[in-house]
């Protein structure tokens, strides 16, 4: 017997997961923005945002991840992120500048919005955020989907065997645990 009764505790986990989704994104974005004045960057922000979404899958099952737009488009997001990061790194070369040269340049005036400076490294960081987010959600989702598919195949086989033997599913000793 599992220590937790799934029927009784799923509600708590599910409502907790729902409540935490929006705050996790707010915190992720805050961490990304404050990275320009304080500890934090796109990488850690991506991990936190991904955890918020993956928690939905944990609470509601992998089918839920297929429903949420943010997880469906995760692979595309990581691809877009890689593109953004690459462009900020290599486009300066086309203008005869050094790799990763940013604009506005060193000692030049940049527009501020609170602690956020509007400089091209912010685009790079958004790219990193998208790569990390997309890779975490997309990768774990793919693994979970495969796992669930195999479990379902196995259960279907068991069900077919038990019905052909004339037994009922209630006698089945191999309990289905996801």
């Amino acid at each position: 017997m599992p220590a937790l009764n799934p029927q009784k505790h799923a509600g708590m986990l599910q409502s907790g997961a729902r409540i935490i989704l929006l705050p996790s994104w707010v915190i992720a974005i805050a961490i990304m923005l404050k990275g320009y004045a304080d500890v934090g960057d796109g990488f850690s922000a991506g991990v936190i945002a991904a955890l918020g979404v993956l928690l939905q899958g944990l609470a509601f099952g992998t089918d839920e991840l297929e429903q949420i737009t943010l997880s469906r488009i995760a692979p595309i997001l990581s691809f877009v992120g890689l593109g953004l990061a690459l462009l900020t790194a290599f486009v300066p070369i086309l203008f005869g500048e050094n790799l990763f040269t940013h604009w506005p340049g060193i000692n030049e005036h940049a527009v501020h919005f609170g602690v956020l400076e509007f400089i091209t490294p912010v685009v790079f960081d958004i790219g990193v955020f998208l790569i990390v987010y997309g890779f975490c959600v997309g990768g774990l989702h793919a693994i979970a989907r495969e796992e669930v598919r195999q479990v379902r195949l196995r259960d279907r086989g068991r069900y077919l065997r038990s019905t052909t033997r004339g037994g009922s599913l209630a006698d089945e000793s191999g309990e289905v645990r996801l």
Binding site: E97, N98, L99, F100, T101, H102, I106
Partner: peptide
């Protein structure tokens, strides 16, 4: 060697 971003050697990340 090459310091990325046009930073001086020792400040920027170097290749």
């Amino acid at each position: 060697s090459l310091a990325v971003g046009g930073w001086s050697l020792g400040v920027g990340i170097t290749l």
